[in-house]
Design a protein around this nucleic acid. Structure first.
Lengths: 267, 267
DNA sequence: TAGTGGTCTAGACCACGTG
DNA sequence: ACGTGGTCTAGACCACTAT
């Protein structure tokens, strides 16, 4: 459908590209200059948001997109390069470019960074404790950018590593986005939560921020994790964002870090 | 000096580039294929390691480097792009490309990610507790890739945020690399430790890995941090690496996370 | 005005995956 | 053999910084 990049007054229109004979005299030195490939990036992102290309699916080839947007292949390449760097797309040489998924091998542990002391990624099972709908508290509403008392879904669950209860999670989701989410659906689903979110609710988690503290286990929490009250736990407050930096999940986790550690790479 | 890329049997020699009339018939489908820009990247990195271009200095322009390595500007551009993405170089439009430094604004808090509850980066002062030379324990030697009983430097220090003792650090460094490092030198130095390391010892920290746990404060630690014994602390085990992924620092930190949190961004 | 990095194009060939 | 992404080149122009 929509074809050409928006042709900012500033950005050179495709047909008046840098090499062409007819230069665009208007608006050099512009305050709102945005490179062509950024505009292409935006257009591709739009197609991702709109669901034209769904997670796991292949997107049109670079030459196709170049024709569609009326730019050179190098320009869409640079756009795709950045989207791939942001984990929105995945390139596979010889095959094509695909919409990223939380089902991929490499994406599995992108958000849960708890490793065993030997450095191995132990498999874990999720035990659902609770899933109910309620009204957002002021604090949750603020973090999810909702109005106070808007509907939210609260999920509480336990993660067990090798049979040991290691992580307790409390997850808040905007109720309007996750309409059909029920305890039954959660209980029957195997695999990463985020994989289900993107498959069933069209909401793909792109990035997240975490605030990490050491806290003493409160009695209720300690009981669920089979540790004494007061035991030191990692408290992880996460906010996850989807396309357009819209927050769509607030999560508080308590991690038992005996035998396990939270891995972080600074670079 | 050294000019041309190594001309892998596989990689096209510059003069027989993809567009040239004389193709290199030898060795298509090679197991050790490495793109030209990767080789250039290696050559640039060599110049960084050797100290030809020092932290803060400007490196030759893209066209100069292209001439020097006998490749196109686009190829050195791609090499520099990656090095900039890895925080080894910093590009500044209109000025040039510079060797990254731990003195820059943006690099200041790249490794210490402790923020106040309000999200602000509070200034902190470092109080040196101890600095002495000793022989590496087996564990430290292993992590620093030294032989057991090799000389190491141990630094212990306290970080105070707004006058409150918040972080206790134990830092091990290879003694042979940090020869002239003394308590006096440490005490008089203002600013990031890593800035001094790169300025005085030519060792620039490139990346680090951290293993984070929640632990109960031991009496000695608790005393230094003005908290009761058993208080929950963040235990941060860091290994820092310099060029060529050589480990050059082992650091264990204990963080008080009341009023502060460890910030992490997942993407 | 000159030099630097930043963008854009067009075209060639290479490596990979699949028929 | 063909199509996909990946590399490489050459040349043009734009945006920014300094002189």
């Amino acid at each position: 459908m929509s074809a050409n990049p928006v042709s900012n007054a500033n950005s050179p229109a495709p047909e008046s590209g840098a090499h062409a004979s007819a230069p665009t005299p208007a608006a050099t030195t512009s305050p709102t200059f945005s490179p062509l490939y950024q505009q292409i990036k935006g257009l591709i992102t739009q197609s991702l948001v709109s669901g034209e290309w769904k997670p796991g699916e292949i997107i049109p080839s670079e030459v196709e997109l170049a024709a569609r947007y009326k730019v050179s292949q190098g320009t869409v390449r640079k756009a795709i390069d950045e989207l791939a760097a942001e984990n929105l797309l995945v390139r596979r040489q010889g095959k094509g470019t695909f919409v990223a998924t939380h089902n991929e091998e490499r994406a599995q542990f992108r958000f849960l960074r708890l490793l065993a002391d030997d450095g191995a990624e132990h498999p874990h099972v999720s035990k659902l404790l609770e899933c109910r709908r309620l009204r957002a508290s002021a604090e949750i509403a603020r973090q999810l950018e909702l109005k106070p008392a808007d509907p939210v879904v609260l999920i509480r669950r336990l993660l067990q590593f090798d049979g040991e209860s290691t992580v307790l999670d409390e997850i808040w989701l905007p109720g309007n986005v996750f309409r059909g989410l029920t305890a039954e659906r959660l209980a029957e689903y195997k695999g990463p939560l985020y994989a289900m979110f993107e498959a069933d609710f069209g909401t793909r988690m792109i990035r997240a921020t975490e605030k990490i503290r050491a806290v003493a286990a409160e009695p209720m929490v300690a009981d669920l994790l089979n540790i004494p009250a007061g035991f030191p736990l990692l408290s992880v407050d996460r906010v996850s964002y989807t396309y357009g930096d819209r927050p769509v999940e607030v999560r508080r986790g308590w991690y038992v870090t005996t035998g396990y550690y939270y891995q972080n790479d600074l670079s």
